[in-house]
Design a protein around this nucleic acid. Structure first.
Length: 482
DNA sequence: TGGGGTTAT
DNA sequence: ATAACCC
């Protein structure tokens, strides 16, 4: 039977007539042609057990584009196709195409090592993410045409909950047609398919939808990628990586344990990161089975009940986290790293550059950020990865000017950011920074009150009267004299 | 290590 | 504001 949720969620299934099922299915989605008429024959009062999507067994697809940045670069410059290609950020090759991989180049390899391994390697600079970001959202939007429930993970991965789509297609099939459903792509472990098992049928239909998604991504955007189909996000993600470039794999429930035990270390488990791995290792936990069999009580004492229960469930392949629609981004940021920045003037110049790019992005988005944050990384010989940040509300008169193509907004924003800077960095003492980043967040839809294409004439008095009533809401941010 | 992102505390 | 996670 399905591996899901040992006892935590009740098995919810409802019995209803086809007529009511139709009514709900028709209301549930907009894009697909409505062809339910054929399934509920007028005479037959034919009741069926219909799993209710979210509470019971789900069908999730994870779509993972192949070496995404490299693919985007090859589309931009067709000369690059067929050559070993690396995408460079600073002195790192952050990703590379499969030609380069065959010659020994790995992701996140230093440019020096990569060139040494592969002198013919062609490098393109990928520090400006604009085109990657744009293509990334095109992929997400394409996935949203299949089902609106799409969750992004980075720029090159998407989860889609296709439970409803699968149920809809199943309802359209006559019962004799169900036993002729076929898989698209690979089946993990070459496990045998049981067409009498409804969970198998549902996953096979899922594999067909996944194939259609990959086809659409290729035909409409020219990108290839992998897909994994399983009953939850964790398993879909793990199984998508089994056959690697441009292929797909479905996981049937009987092979779930094999999949998770194929991970040779718990650090390979999505959701268990660097820190947690270190702490687990300190407890003598190294393998997935170690984590499965470890005392829950002790685990809870070490990590708190929330983390402990979550990661231990992951070790069994259980993951009840929903596919959360990402929607538009929650924040926009631009960062730059460097060997050394040690003067205020230098910092100001870099901050202004970051800000200029961000203003363009915010302008395109249409929404208005209400908070701005400055992030720094200080040089330190070892003390691992520490960033510091300061944030504050963006004054309402500045918010109003955002997105008007008015570069008057630069001056007040740079002034704000430099105040944040001096709040973090004592500029009277020597300092050494290796990164600066500016982030706009707390995005809100524009004020529809009064707009029109010309905000240029908006006066300070008008904007202050408009917003004076809302001030008390967000005063948890750093206060700055204005 | 890059240049991004998210959620939880 | 930071810390953890993801790519």
């Amino acid at each position: 039977e399905p591996e899901e949720e040992g006892g935590r969620e009740e098995e919810v299934a409802v019995v209803r007539s086809m007529e009511s099922a139709d009514a709900e299915a028709a209301g549930g989605s907009e894009g697909a042609p409505s062809t339910e008429e054929g399934s509920g024959l007028p005479g037959s009062v034919h009741h069926e057990v219909v799993p209710t999507g979210s509470a019971s067994s789900r069908v999730i697809v994870h779509v993972d584009l192949d070496c995404f940045y490299a693919q985007v670069e090859m589309i931009s410059n067709l000369e690059l196709k067929g050559k070993p290609l690396g995408v460079q950020q600073k002195y790192l090759v952050v990703t590379c195409n499969y030609e380069a991989r065959k010659l020994g180049v790995k992701k996140l390899m230093s440019v020096r090592d990569a060139k040494e391994k592969c002198p013919q390697l062609v490098l393109v600079n990928g520090e400006d993410l604009t085109r990657y970001r744009e293509m990334s959202y095109k992929v997400t939007e394409l996935m949203e045409e299949f089902s609106p429930v799409v969750e992004r993970l980075g720029f090159d991965e998407n989860f889609v909950d296709i439970t409803e789509m699968v149920e809809k297609r199943l309802q359209q099939l006559q019962s004799d047609e169900r036993s002729s459903v076929t898989v698209s792509g690979h089946v993990y472990n070459d496990q045998s398919i049981n067409l009498h098992d409804i969970s198998h049928i549902r996953l096979l239909v899922g594999s067909q939808i996944a194939a259609e998604m990959r086809e659409a991504i290729y035909n409409q955007l020219g990108l290839t990628g992998c897909a994994g189909v399983a009953s939850n996000k964790l398993l879909a993600k793990l199984v998508s990586g089994i056959f690697k470039p441009n292929q797909q794999t479905v996981l049937l429930p009987e092979s779930c344990q094999d999949l998770i035990h194929s991970l040779n270390h718990i650090k390979k488990m999505p959701g268990i990161g660097y820190k947690t791995t270190k702490r687990l290792e300190a407890l003598g936990i190294n393998s997935v089975r170690d984590l499965q069999t470890f005392s829950s009580k002790i685990l809870e004492k070490e990590f708190g009940i929330s983390v402990a229960q979550r990661i231990q469930k992951l070790s069994f392949g259980e993951d009840n986290s929903p596919v959360t629609p990402s929607g538009p981004p929650q924040s926009f940021s631009e960062e730059d790293s460097f060997k050394k920045c040690s003067s205020e003037a230098e910092a100001k110049k870099k901050i202004a550059e970051l800000l200029a790019s961000l203003l363009n992005r915010v302008c395109q988005d249409g929404r208005k950020p209400h908070t701005v944050r400055l992030i720094i990384r200080r040089y330190s010989s070892e003390k691992h990865y520490s960033r510091e940040s300061r944030q504050c509300p963006i004054p309402s008169h500045v918010i109003q000017k955002l997105g008007t193509g008015n570069y008057d907004v630069m001056t007040p924003m740079v002034d704000i950011l430099m105040k944040l800077f001096r709040n973090m960095v004592n500029v009277k003492m020597p300092f050494h920074l290796t990164l600066l980043s500016v982030c706009f967040c707390n995005l809100k839809a524009l004020n529809t009150a009064k707009k029109g294409p010309i905000d240029y004439y908006l006066t300070p008095s008008l904007s202050t009267t408009k917003c004076s009533g809302k001030r008390s809401l967000k005063m948890k941010d750093t206060h700055m004299e204005d």
